[in-house]
Design a protein around this nucleic acid. Sequence first.
DNA 1: TATATTAATGCGATTATATCGCATTAATCG
DNA 2: CGATTAATGCGATATAATCGCATTAATATA
Lengths: 128, 128
Amino acid sequence: MLNDMKRRNTPTKQAVLSVLSSSTKAMSPDAIKKKIDVSIDRATIYRVLNRFCDDGVLHRVVADDGKQYFAMCQKCDENEKPLQHFHFRCTHCETIECLPLPVNYTIAKGYEVKNVNCVLIGVCKDCA
Amino acid sequence: MLNDMKRRNTPTKQAVLSVLSSSTKAMSPDAIKKKIDVSIDRATIYRVLNRFCDDGVLHRVVADDGKQYFAMCQKCDENEKPLQHFHFRCTHCETIECLPLPVNYTIAKGYEVKNVNCVLIGVCKDCA
DNA sequence: TATATTAATGCGATTATATCGCATTAATCG
DNA sequence: CGATTAATGCGATATAATCGCATTAATATA
Ligand SMILES: [Mn+2]
Ligand SMILES: [Mn+2]
Ligand SMILES: [Zn+2]
Ligand SMILES: [Zn+2]
């Protein structure tokens, strides 16, 4: 937990985590909502996802379609930094996946990189 | 020109190009609009920018704020592919710049990368 | 130069994503 | 059980971007 606010365990949070942990892909709030049987308010979904990101449970990718996608963090527990990796958006099956491909860069002196948001766009191996 | 549709030369297009060619940064449609003296409709700005992207005159970056930014293409004339490079969004001065830093990746076999959208987020050298 | 063609524009409406305020509900703890 | 307050539902709101359509004007042609 990066945030010290007390969190409560709720069915909504459990359901969201359940959906994302059983997915190999990053998912949009709407796609997550659709995967949950019971009706959950849109605003609640967003708030749950944002809190999980704050807490380092999930990470967020903004794709080139301007939308947010969420996925489980792998190395986020432990005090390790979350692994910065590329994402892949397949224009055919319209999915976004976390690639096991770290983002490497050698940036000019003076810049301070705090975060990255990197998406490769094309056709995934399942659709090729 | 990647597109064979006949384009007409208009004051709006000239103004947009003038603004972007005198900027080292990628700019949002709204920022571009503000830099132009005469009033131009929002929809027109978007259409002009989209056409320029289609024609390979400009390229588009979607930042992690979900917004679109536009910048001149360097290697887009000629029949060369446009250079795929990282961008940098400074959270302090709120600008987005094209970095002279190519995006390199070795992706698993089967994937076909058609485009990239890569943004590094942090504090730029002018703000550090 | 005058006229025809149609790309480009202005304007309003529309779509879509995401957030916010506030009253209510319910998780947690003593 | 009762108190505290995090979490939720609902409606309103903010913002980005696009679309339909009538009008304007850039360009080509006579
Ligand atoms: Mn990821
Ligand atoms: Mn660029
Ligand atoms: Zn695919
Ligand atoms: Zn800066």
